[in-house]
């Protein structure tokens, strides 16, 4: 029914070592304790594109995203079936260090969360963590420029990161995430705590960043996905015995998902019949 759906694209991804799938995400079942949070969600994330995840509250968008860089490992009772491949390496293989995974797959969170240190140190943090040998000041400047924040903070790099406004803090967090040049940046509702003007800036920023970085974007805002995402995955939620379980309904080009959704549920969601 849906040509883009899971299995077909997975086979392609694993067949071509040089395919442009950076993260191949095959989640069969994700549990928190006994509770099945997400099932059957297979989303290949293409290099140099923005892959948007939309869906109603509690559909497991964030859970899927947090599986990709093993942030869910920090949650008690997390366990999953399936696999996640990053450049054809199994992210969950027992020899893989989740800490290293997170250095290559960066993350921007829902709430802006700069560290309680200066703007400069916030961006330099990841570089220092990796014992970066080059010119830290230059890297910090570049990251801040890419995050469209340099002009506003260049005269107060020593000021606390927490002294910035919400929108600036979020751009600082983006600068921090891209300073270490990760291959993929995961963004978990990065604009949900921001005003429309800041949101706009960050959306423009995402489109600029996808030239160099692959982005996976979770958003509660359908219009945002429509504006910035190349591919869109629509997840929905069903009430099961253990609680609410999210699953992938449809995945495709953003224009196809919004203009010509194949699934009845997607149509209803796009029309705004539930949220």
């Amino acid at each position: 029914m849906n040509m883009n759906f899971s299995a077909a694209s997975n086979v392609n991804a694993s067949k071509n070592a040089h395919s442009n799938v950076v993260i191949d995400c095959n989640l069969d079942k994700v549990f928190y304790g006994d509770f099945l949070a997400v099932r059957d969600s297979h989303v290949p994330i293409q290099k140099g594109q923005i892959t948007g995840f939309i869906g109603p509250s509690g559909c497991g968008k964030s859970t899927v995203l947090r599986c990709l860089n093993r942030m869910n490992d920090l949650i008690e009772g997390f366990r999953f079936e399936g696999n996640v491949h990053f450049n054809n390496q199994d992210v969950y293989h027992k020899t893989v260090d989740p800490v290293v995974v997170r250095r290559y797959i960066g993350m921007v969170f829902q709430q802006p969360n700069p560290f309680a240190m200066s703007i400069f140190d916030n961006v330099a943090f990841g570089l220092r963590l990796n014992r970066f040998k080059g010119d830290i000041a230059e890297c910090v400047e570049n990251a801040l420029k890419k995050a469209a924040l340099w002009g506003e903070v260049k005269d107060k790099l020593k000021a606390s990161g927490l002294s910035l406004s919400g929108g600036q803090q979020q751009r600082l967090c983006i600068a921090r995430a891209i300073a270490t040049e990760p291959a993929v940046v995961l963004m978990d509702e990065p604009c949900s705590a921001l005003d429309p003007i800041s949101t706009r800036r960050i959306e423009e920023l995402m489109i600029e960043l996808k030239e160099k970085y692959t982005i996976a974007l979770v958003t509660h805002n359908m219009q945002q996905a429509k504006r910035v995402a190349d591919k869109t995955a629509f997840l929905s939620v069903e009430i099961s015995e253990g609680g609410r379980t999210g699953y992938l309904v449809e995945l495709g080009e953003t224009s196809q998902i919004f203009d010509d959704p194949k699934e009845e549920l997607t149509q209803q969601y796009i029309r705004g019949e539930f949220s």
């Binding site: 920090l74 800490v99 250095r103 709430q111 969360n113 943090f125 990841g126 963590l129 967090c173 995430a177």
Partner: peptide, 22 residues
């Protein structure tokens, strides 16, 4: 704030780095 710790883990800190550096 736990969101600050999440940021540290997200950028690739080990648990002891999260504790000592953040």
């Amino acid at each position: 704030p736990s969101k600050m710790k999440a940021a540290a883990y997200g950028i690739g800190c080990t648990r002891s780095q999260v504790i000592w550096k953040i």
